[in-house]
Protein backbone atom coordinates (compact mmCIF):
# COMPACT_ATOMS: atom_id res chain seq x y z
CA UNK A 1 0.00 0.00 0.00
CA UNK A 2 2.93 2.30 0.79
CA UNK A 3 4.42 1.60 -2.61
CA UNK A 4 1.09 2.50 -4.24
CA UNK A 5 1.08 5.84 -2.47
CA UNK A 6 4.64 6.50 -3.60
CA UNK A 7 3.60 5.61 -7.13
CA UNK A 8 0.62 7.95 -7.01
CA UNK A 9 2.72 10.82 -5.64
CA UNK A 10 5.53 10.32 -8.16
CA UNK A 11 3.14 9.99 -11.08
CA UNK A 12 1.25 13.11 -10.02
CA UNK A 13 4.47 15.09 -9.66
CA UNK A 14 5.63 13.93 -13.07
CA UNK A 15 2.51 15.50 -14.58
CA UNK A 16 3.75 18.96 -13.62
CA UNK A 17 6.90 18.98 -15.82
CA UNK A 18 4.85 17.38 -18.60
CA UNK A 19 2.39 20.26 -18.50
CA UNK A 20 5.21 22.85 -18.25
CA UNK A 21 6.91 21.39 -21.32
CA UNK A 22 3.58 21.41 -23.19
CA UNK A 23 2.93 25.03 -22.25
CA UNK A 24 6.41 26.03 -23.36
CA UNK A 25 6.03 24.25 -26.68
CA UNK A 26 2.69 25.99 -27.31
CA UNK A 27 4.20 29.37 -26.40
CA UNK A 28 7.19 28.81 -28.67
CA UNK A 29 5.15 27.54 -31.62
CA UNK A 30 2.82 30.52 -31.53
CA UNK A 31 5.81 32.82 -31.82
CA UNK A 32 7.84 30.81 -34.32
CA UNK A 33 5.03 30.63 -36.87
CA UNK A 34 5.56 32.96 -39.82
CA UNK A 35 3.44 36.07 -40.21
CA UNK A 36 2.39 38.83 -37.90
CA UNK A 37 -0.73 37.95 -35.89
CA UNK A 38 -1.56 41.62 -35.44
CA UNK A 39 -1.79 42.19 -39.18
CA UNK A 40 -3.89 39.07 -39.50
CA UNK A 41 -6.40 40.29 -36.97
CA UNK A 42 -6.80 43.94 -37.84
CA UNK A 43 -6.79 43.39 -41.58
CA UNK A 44 -5.23 45.38 -44.33
CA UNK A 45 -6.99 48.68 -43.87
CA UNK A 46 -6.13 49.20 -40.21
CA UNK A 47 -4.50 52.48 -39.17
CA UNK A 48 -1.17 52.33 -37.23
CA UNK A 49 -2.84 53.37 -33.91
CA UNK A 50 -5.11 50.35 -34.05
CA UNK A 51 -2.13 48.06 -34.69
CA UNK A 52 -0.29 49.51 -31.66
CA UNK A 53 -3.40 49.10 -29.51
CA UNK A 54 -3.68 45.44 -30.40
CA UNK A 55 0.00 44.83 -29.80
CA UNK A 56 -0.52 46.19 -26.31
CA UNK A 57 -3.47 43.88 -25.77
CA UNK A 58 -1.40 40.92 -26.92
CA UNK A 59 1.32 41.82 -24.45
CA UNK A 60 3.86 42.36 -27.21
CA UNK A 61 4.61 45.99 -26.34
CA UNK A 62 4.36 48.03 -23.15
CA UNK A 63 2.41 51.23 -22.50
CA UNK A 64 5.13 53.32 -24.10
CA UNK A 65 5.21 51.23 -27.26
CA UNK A 66 8.47 49.46 -26.38
CA UNK A 67 8.68 45.74 -27.22
CA UNK A 68 8.40 43.45 -24.20
CA UNK A 69 11.27 40.91 -24.05
CA UNK A 70 10.33 37.32 -24.89
CA UNK A 71 11.20 35.94 -21.45
CA UNK A 72 8.92 38.50 -19.76
CA UNK A 73 6.15 37.54 -22.21
CA UNK A 74 6.76 33.91 -21.27
CA UNK A 75 6.59 34.65 -17.53
CA UNK A 76 3.40 36.70 -17.97
CA UNK A 77 1.84 33.93 -20.00
CA UNK A 78 2.85 31.30 -17.48
CA UNK A 79 1.70 33.17 -14.40
CA UNK A 80 -1.62 33.87 -16.15
CA UNK A 81 -2.25 30.18 -16.78
CA UNK A 82 -1.41 29.27 -13.19
CA UNK A 83 -4.06 31.77 -12.10
CA UNK A 84 -6.54 30.18 -14.50
CA UNK A 85 -6.32 33.17 -16.83
CA UNK A 86 -6.05 31.88 -20.38
CA UNK A 87 -6.17 35.38 -21.78
CA UNK A 88 -8.90 37.16 -23.69
CA UNK A 89 -10.11 36.42 -27.17
CA UNK A 90 -8.92 38.90 -29.76
CA UNK A 91 -12.20 38.89 -31.64
CA UNK A 92 -15.94 39.25 -31.02
CA UNK A 93 -16.25 41.01 -27.75
CA UNK A 94 -12.87 39.92 -26.44
CA UNK A 95 -14.38 37.48 -23.98
CA UNK A 96 -12.17 35.50 -21.57
CA UNK A 97 -10.88 32.41 -23.37
CA UNK A 98 -11.69 30.12 -20.46
CA UNK A 99 -15.38 31.10 -20.65
CA UNK A 100 -15.44 30.41 -24.38
CA UNK A 101 -13.81 27.02 -23.77
CA UNK A 102 -16.20 26.08 -20.99
CA UNK A 103 -19.18 26.99 -23.21
CA UNK A 104 -18.06 24.62 -25.94
CA UNK A 105 -16.54 21.84 -23.87
CA UNK A 106 -19.78 20.14 -22.67
CA UNK A 107 -20.82 19.44 -26.27
CA UNK A 108 -17.49 17.72 -26.92
CA UNK A 109 -17.67 15.81 -23.65
CA UNK A 110 -21.17 14.60 -24.47
CA UNK A 111 -20.12 13.46 -27.93
CA UNK A 112 -16.88 11.93 -26.65
CA UNK A 113 -18.59 9.96 -23.89
CA UNK A 114 -21.23 8.60 -26.25
CA UNK A 115 -18.64 7.84 -28.91
CA UNK A 116 -16.50 6.15 -26.33
CA UNK A 117 -19.38 4.02 -25.06
CA UNK A 118 -20.25 3.00 -28.61
CA UNK A 119 -16.65 2.13 -29.41
CA UNK A 120 -16.22 0.16 -26.20
CA UNK A 121 -19.48 -1.75 -26.70
CA UNK A 122 -18.65 -2.65 -30.29
CA UNK A 123 -15.02 -3.38 -29.47
CA UNK A 124 -15.64 -5.57 -26.43
CA UNK A 125 -18.58 -7.51 -27.85
CA UNK A 126 -16.98 -8.13 -31.23
CA UNK A 127 -13.55 -8.91 -29.68
CA UNK A 128 -14.94 -11.42 -27.19
CA UNK A 129 -17.15 -13.01 -29.82
CA UNK A 130 -14.30 -13.21 -32.28
CA UNK A 131 -12.06 -14.92 -29.74
CA UNK A 132 -14.87 -17.28 -28.80
CA UNK A 133 -15.44 -18.22 -32.46
CA UNK A 134 -11.74 -18.38 -33.24
CA UNK A 135 -10.94 -19.26 -36.85
CA UNK A 136 -14.56 -19.23 -37.97
CA UNK A 137 -15.98 -17.01 -40.70
CA UNK A 138 -17.33 -14.68 -38.01
CA UNK A 139 -13.83 -14.38 -36.56
CA UNK A 140 -12.51 -13.46 -40.01
CA UNK A 141 -15.26 -10.93 -40.55
CA UNK A 142 -14.64 -9.25 -37.22
CA UNK A 143 -10.89 -9.16 -37.84
CA UNK A 144 -11.46 -7.46 -41.17
CA UNK A 145 -13.87 -5.09 -39.48
CA UNK A 146 -11.12 -4.31 -36.94
CA UNK A 147 -8.75 -3.31 -39.73
CA UNK A 148 -11.27 -1.46 -41.91
CA UNK A 149 -12.85 0.54 -39.10
CA UNK A 150 -9.44 1.67 -37.91
CA UNK A 151 -8.65 2.96 -41.37
CA UNK A 152 -12.00 4.70 -41.94
CA UNK A 153 -11.94 8.45 -42.48
CA UNK A 154 -14.48 10.13 -40.20
CA UNK A 155 -15.88 12.71 -42.68
CA UNK A 156 -16.35 9.96 -45.25
CA UNK A 157 -18.17 7.46 -43.04
CA UNK A 158 -20.05 10.36 -41.42
CA UNK A 159 -21.27 11.58 -44.77
CA UNK A 160 -22.41 8.09 -45.76
CA UNK A 161 -24.49 7.91 -42.60
CA UNK A 162 -25.84 11.40 -43.22
CA UNK A 163 -26.83 10.51 -46.76
CA UNK A 164 -28.45 7.23 -45.83
CA UNK A 165 -30.19 7.99 -42.54
CA UNK A 166 -30.70 11.70 -43.04
CA UNK A 167 -31.31 12.32 -46.72
CA UNK A 168 -32.60 8.94 -47.99
CA UNK A 169 -34.53 7.60 -45.00
CA UNK A 170 -35.07 10.98 -43.33
CA UNK A 171 -35.15 9.37 -39.89
CA UNK A 172 -32.21 11.10 -38.23
CA UNK A 173 -30.92 14.67 -38.36
CA UNK A 174 -27.63 15.15 -40.16
CA UNK A 175 -26.29 18.17 -38.34
CA UNK A 176 -26.51 20.15 -35.14
CA UNK A 177 -26.96 19.20 -31.50
CA UNK A 178 -30.68 19.68 -31.00
CA UNK A 179 -33.72 20.93 -32.94
CA UNK A 180 -34.19 24.72 -33.05
CA UNK A 181 -35.83 26.03 -29.91
CA UNK A 182 -35.59 22.71 -28.04
CA UNK A 183 -32.60 23.37 -25.78
CA UNK A 184 -33.16 22.25 -22.20
CA UNK A 185 -32.44 24.56 -19.31
CA UNK A 186 -28.65 24.75 -18.97
CA UNK A 187 -27.35 23.05 -15.83
CA UNK A 188 -24.36 20.94 -16.82
CA UNK A 189 -24.28 21.84 -20.49
CA UNK A 190 -24.78 18.16 -21.36
CA UNK A 191 -28.13 18.23 -23.12
CA UNK A 192 -29.05 14.61 -22.37
CA UNK A 193 -28.33 15.02 -18.69
CA UNK A 194 -29.94 18.45 -18.46
CA UNK A 195 -33.13 17.27 -20.12
CA UNK A 196 -33.33 14.31 -17.73
CA UNK A 197 -32.75 16.57 -14.71
CA UNK A 198 -35.43 18.99 -15.87
CA UNK A 199 -37.73 16.17 -17.10
CA UNK A 200 -37.80 17.80 -20.50
CA UNK A 201 -38.47 14.66 -22.56
CA UNK A 202 -38.97 16.28 -25.98
CA UNK A 203 -35.50 17.82 -25.55
CA UNK A 204 -34.10 14.47 -24.47
CA UNK A 205 -35.45 12.75 -27.58
CA UNK A 206 -34.29 15.54 -29.85
CA UNK A 207 -30.75 15.64 -28.44
CA UNK A 208 -30.54 11.83 -28.44
CA UNK A 209 -31.57 11.74 -32.11
CA UNK A 210 -28.91 14.31 -32.93
CA UNK A 211 -26.32 12.36 -30.98
CA UNK A 212 -26.88 9.00 -32.68
CA UNK A 213 -25.08 9.52 -35.99
CA UNK A 214 -22.04 11.44 -34.68
CA UNK A 215 -21.47 9.06 -31.78
CA UNK A 216 -21.85 5.97 -33.97
CA UNK A 217 -19.44 7.47 -36.50
CA UNK A 218 -16.90 8.27 -33.82
CA UNK A 219 -17.55 4.97 -32.06
CA UNK A 220 -17.05 2.84 -35.15
CA UNK A 221 -13.77 4.50 -36.06
CA UNK A 222 -12.41 4.06 -32.55
CA UNK A 223 -13.82 0.56 -32.01
CA UNK A 224 -11.36 -1.25 -34.30
CA UNK A 225 -8.50 -0.98 -31.87
CA UNK A 226 -10.65 -2.32 -29.03
CA UNK A 227 -11.87 -5.20 -31.18
CA UNK A 228 -8.36 -6.26 -32.04
CA UNK A 229 -7.02 -5.75 -28.54
CA UNK A 230 -9.89 -7.58 -26.86
CA UNK A 231 -9.63 -10.46 -29.30
CA UNK A 232 -5.88 -10.81 -28.77
CA UNK A 233 -6.08 -10.55 -24.98
CA UNK A 234 -9.03 -12.94 -24.83
CA UNK A 235 -7.29 -15.54 -26.99
CA UNK A 236 -4.31 -15.39 -24.69
CA UNK A 237 -6.39 -15.73 -21.56
CA UNK A 238 -8.64 -18.43 -23.05
CA UNK A 239 -5.61 -20.62 -23.69
CA UNK A 240 -4.48 -20.49 -20.07
CA UNK A 241 -4.78 -23.38 -17.64
CA UNK A 242 -7.39 -21.86 -15.34
CA UNK A 243 -9.80 -21.47 -18.24
CA UNK A 244 -9.21 -25.06 -19.36
CA UNK A 245 -9.84 -26.08 -15.77
CA UNK A 246 -13.05 -24.06 -15.73
CA UNK A 247 -14.17 -25.69 -18.96
CA UNK A 248 -13.33 -29.13 -17.51
CA UNK A 249 -15.56 -28.35 -14.53
CA UNK A 250 -18.40 -27.77 -16.94
CA UNK A 251 -18.91 -24.04 -16.36
CA UNK A 252 -21.20 -22.43 -18.97
CA UNK A 253 -19.53 -20.56 -21.83
CA UNK A 254 -20.98 -17.23 -20.80
CA UNK A 255 -19.40 -17.45 -17.35
CA UNK A 256 -16.07 -18.54 -18.75
CA UNK A 257 -16.00 -15.65 -21.22
CA UNK A 258 -16.89 -13.16 -18.49
CA UNK A 259 -14.18 -14.56 -16.27
CA UNK A 260 -11.65 -14.39 -19.11
CA UNK A 261 -12.66 -10.85 -19.96
CA UNK A 262 -11.90 -9.67 -16.43
CA UNK A 263 -8.39 -11.03 -16.81
CA UNK A 264 -7.97 -9.60 -20.28
CA UNK A 265 -9.07 -6.16 -19.18
CA UNK A 266 -5.74 -4.57 -18.13
CA UNK A 267 -4.38 -3.92 -21.64
CA UNK A 268 -7.85 -2.74 -22.69
CA UNK A 269 -7.93 -0.28 -19.82
CA UNK A 270 -4.53 1.11 -20.81
CA UNK A 271 -5.77 1.54 -24.35
CA UNK A 272 -8.90 3.30 -23.06
CA UNK A 273 -6.67 5.99 -21.56
CA UNK A 274 -4.57 6.31 -24.68
CA UNK A 275 -7.70 6.45 -26.80
CA UNK A 276 -8.89 9.54 -24.99
CA UNK A 277 -6.43 11.78 -26.84
CA UNK A 278 -7.45 10.11 -30.09
CA UNK A 279 -11.07 10.55 -29.10
CA UNK A 280 -10.63 14.31 -28.87
CA UNK A 281 -8.88 14.40 -32.25
CA UNK A 282 -11.64 12.27 -33.71
CA UNK A 283 -14.20 14.50 -32.08
CA UNK A 284 -12.81 17.50 -33.99
CA UNK A 285 -13.42 15.74 -37.31
CA UNK A 286 -16.78 14.39 -36.20
CA UNK A 287 -17.85 17.80 -34.97
CA UNK A 288 -16.97 19.40 -38.28
CA UNK A 289 -18.79 16.71 -40.24
CA UNK A 290 -21.95 16.96 -38.16
CA UNK A 291 -21.78 20.71 -37.38
CA UNK A 292 -21.51 19.80 -33.72
CA UNK A 293 -20.85 22.96 -31.70
CA UNK A 294 -18.00 21.57 -29.59
CA UNK A 295 -14.49 22.57 -28.71
CA UNK A 296 -13.03 20.97 -31.85
CA UNK A 297 -14.96 23.07 -34.31
CA UNK A 298 -14.45 26.06 -32.06
CA UNK A 299 -10.68 25.59 -32.23
CA UNK A 300 -10.68 25.12 -36.00
CA UNK A 301 -12.76 28.23 -36.45
CA UNK A 302 -10.54 30.36 -34.23
CA UNK A 303 -7.50 29.14 -36.13
CA UNK A 304 -9.17 30.43 -39.28
CA UNK A 305 -9.85 33.78 -37.64
CA UNK A 306 -6.30 33.85 -36.27
CA UNK A 307 -7.53 34.43 -32.75
CA UNK A 308 -4.11 33.61 -31.33
CA UNK A 309 -4.86 33.88 -27.63
CA UNK A 310 -7.90 31.61 -27.95
CA UNK A 311 -5.98 29.05 -29.99
CA UNK A 312 -3.16 29.11 -27.48
CA UNK A 313 -5.56 28.84 -24.55
CA UNK A 314 -7.53 26.00 -26.11
CA UNK A 315 -4.42 24.01 -26.97
CA UNK A 316 -3.16 24.47 -23.41
CA UNK A 317 -6.55 23.38 -22.10
CA UNK A 318 -6.43 20.25 -24.27
CA UNK A 319 -2.90 19.53 -23.09
CA UNK A 320 -3.85 19.82 -19.44
CA UNK A 321 -6.97 17.68 -19.85
CA UNK A 322 -5.04 14.94 -21.66
CA UNK A 323 -2.25 15.00 -19.06
CA UNK A 324 -4.79 14.69 -16.28
CA UNK A 325 -6.69 11.87 -17.98
CA UNK A 326 -3.46 10.05 -18.59
CA UNK A 327 -2.60 10.49 -14.90
CA UNK A 328 -5.97 9.09 -13.82
CA UNK A 329 -5.63 6.11 -16.16
CA UNK A 330 -2.16 5.36 -14.85
CA UNK A 331 -3.42 5.49 -11.30
CA UNK A 332 -6.31 3.12 -12.03
CA UNK A 333 -3.91 0.87 -13.85
CA UNK A 334 -1.59 0.81 -10.85
CA UNK A 335 -4.51 0.12 -8.56
CA UNK A 336 -5.67 -2.85 -10.62
CA UNK A 337 -2.25 -4.31 -11.37
CA UNK A 338 0.02 -4.50 -8.27
CA UNK A 339 3.06 -5.08 -10.49
CA UNK A 340 2.96 -1.43 -11.63
CA UNK A 341 5.12 0.50 -9.16
CA UNK A 342 8.16 2.76 -9.20
Amino acid sequence: MVSLRIYIATRALLTIPTIIILLTIVFAIMRILPGDPVTAIVGMKAPPEQIQELKKELGLIDEFGKPIPLYIQYLNYFSGIIKGDFGKSLIWGKRPVIIEILEHFPATIELSIMGFIVSLLIGLISGVYSAHKYSSWMDSTIRIYGIISYALFIPWIGMLFQMFFGVQLKILPVAGRIDPGMEPQQITGLFLLDSIITSNWPSFISSLKHLILPSITLGIVLSGIFTRLTRGAMLEVLSQDFIIAAKARGLPNRKILLHALKNAFIPILTMMGLQFALLLTGAILTETTFSWPGIGTFLMERINYRDYTTVQGTVVFFAIIISLVSLIVDLIYAYIDPRIRY
Partner: peptide, 20 residues
Protein backbone atom coordinates in the same frame (compact mmCIF):
# COMPACT_ATOMS: atom_id res chain seq x y z
CA UNK B 1 -36.80 33.30 -38.74
CA UNK B 2 -34.27 30.82 -37.45
CA UNK B 3 -30.70 31.02 -38.67
CA UNK B 4 -28.80 27.77 -38.18
CA UNK B 5 -25.02 27.95 -38.23
CA UNK B 6 -23.24 25.05 -39.90
CA UNK B 7 -19.63 24.11 -39.50
CA UNK B 8 -19.31 22.96 -43.07
CA UNK B 9 -21.15 23.41 -46.32
CA UNK B 10 -21.76 19.71 -46.87
CA UNK B 11 -23.85 19.33 -43.70
CA UNK B 12 -25.86 22.37 -44.73
CA UNK B 13 -26.50 20.90 -48.16
CA UNK B 14 -27.59 17.57 -46.66
CA UNK B 15 -29.94 19.28 -44.20
CA UNK B 16 -31.53 21.13 -47.11
CA UNK B 17 -31.98 17.89 -49.01
CA UNK B 18 -33.42 16.25 -45.90
CA UNK B 19 -35.93 19.13 -45.76
CA UNK B 20 -34.80 20.30 -42.33
Amino acid sequence: IIVRFFKDATSMRLELEAGR
